[in-house]
């Protein structure tokens, strides 16, 4: 508790918003009609880790695996109504499962867990773009990406730039952005895919979602959280966007201690989170929305109020 408060006070200074440990938040603070909850569950860079890490004495031994993750997700779904389950890419590569089955069990497992959407990471091209297009036939969720031009590739009709979800009273726009492939992925693997400038495409897509009355806008990003040089990252996107409320990140395999909050170009908050890799962690963000004025019901201007104490 003490540590949480200290962290929380530090964040306060950073964001200009006072924060408090969530254990004191009464559920009935808002009247029922003025209030809605949304739970976002997320993973990134799972890298074909279908089974838990082997019990070899290493620090991740026994962690992860789809069976344990599914159990946790199901439990959360039983407890809370409005859930979005999202993945920020690099579903493929990293265990012999991928070498043998090219991603089929990974996509089937995600479908069984009822993922709502995923974006593509660079390693999702590892067995070729045709293979990814083949494997997502097993998906019952969309692949969202707004800055890869897939014209004349196997992915041409197999993705969407964004999708809009209605969860309770909240309308949520979710879209994806991907990393530059040249230099990272062999050219024969990504074929004629054209990488387009992610900040510009993200802002266009978010603007479109805003105009379609989305209360909240989420970006699934495989750009990486931040770099030493000025390579485009989630941090840069967060600062240069207008309408993105939340960026679910990946690629850099970073375990965040807490979500990061940035001031965007509209003066609002853009939250960034990432949960390492290998399915070692499942990220959870609980949003509580308040009524905003007479016409518009909800708008996510986030106050991150610290770590939820559970169990």
């Amino acid at each position: 508790m003490q540590i949480d408060r200290r962290k929380f006070v530090k964040q306060t200074a950073m964001t200009g918003a006072a924060l408090i440990a969530s254990t004191v938040v009464p559920d009935n603070l808002f009247a029922e009609s003025e209030f809605e909850r949304l739970t976002i569950l997320h993973t990134n860079d799972v890298h074909s880790r279908l089974e838990p890490f082997p019990m070899d004495g290493s620090k991740n031994a026994g962690l992860g695996g789809v069976a344990a993750r599914a159990e946790l997700i199901n439990k959360i779904r039983r407890e809370t109504e409005n859930v979005l389950l999202l993945d920020a890419g690099d579903i493929f590569q990293g265990t012999p499962y991928f070498n043998l089955y090219k991603g089929e069990p990974e996509i089937k497992a995600m479908s069984m867990m009822q993922y709502d959407a995923a974006t593509m990471g660079n390693h999702d091209f590892d067995a070729g773009i045709e293979n990814f297009a083949t494997q997502i036939k097993h998906a019952n969720f969309p692949i969202l990406i707004c800055n890869y031009n897939f014209t004349n590739t196997a992915m041409e009709y197999k993705f969407s730039p964004y999708k809009i979800y209605q969860k309770g009273k909240i309308k949520i726009g979710v879209f994806g952005v991907g990393i530059e492939l040249k230099g990272l992925v062999a050219e024969n693997l990504f074929d004629k895919t054209i990488y387009e400038e992610p900040i510009e495409k993200a802002n266009q897509t978010a603007d479109h979602l805003k105009k379609n009355n989305c209360d909240m806008i989420i970006c699934l990003s495989h750009l990486g959280d931040k770099y030493q040089d000025n390579k485009v990252s989630d941090e840069i996107l967060a600062k240069q966007c207008y309408d993105i409320d939340l960026i679910i990140g990946g690629h850099t395999h970073r375990f965040f201690d807490a979500p990061k909050v940035y001031r965007n170009r509209k003066g609002g908050d853009t939250v960034v989170n990432q949960v390492g890799w290998g399915g070692i962690q499942l990220g959870r963000l609980d949003y509580s929305f308040a009524r905003t004025g007479k016409k518009k019901f909800f708008e996510a201007h986030s106050f991150v109020i610290g770590k939820k104490i559970r169990e």
Partner: peptide, 23 residues
């Protein structure tokens, strides 16, 4: 009138307890 409160939890995905048999 522009509020969303965000709470966060990073679960360690542990295999101590029951796991999902479908998966």
């Amino acid at each position: 009138a522009q509020t969303a409160i965000v709470e966060f939890t990073d679960y360690k995905v542990e295999n101590k307890l029951k796991v999902d048999t479908t998966l």
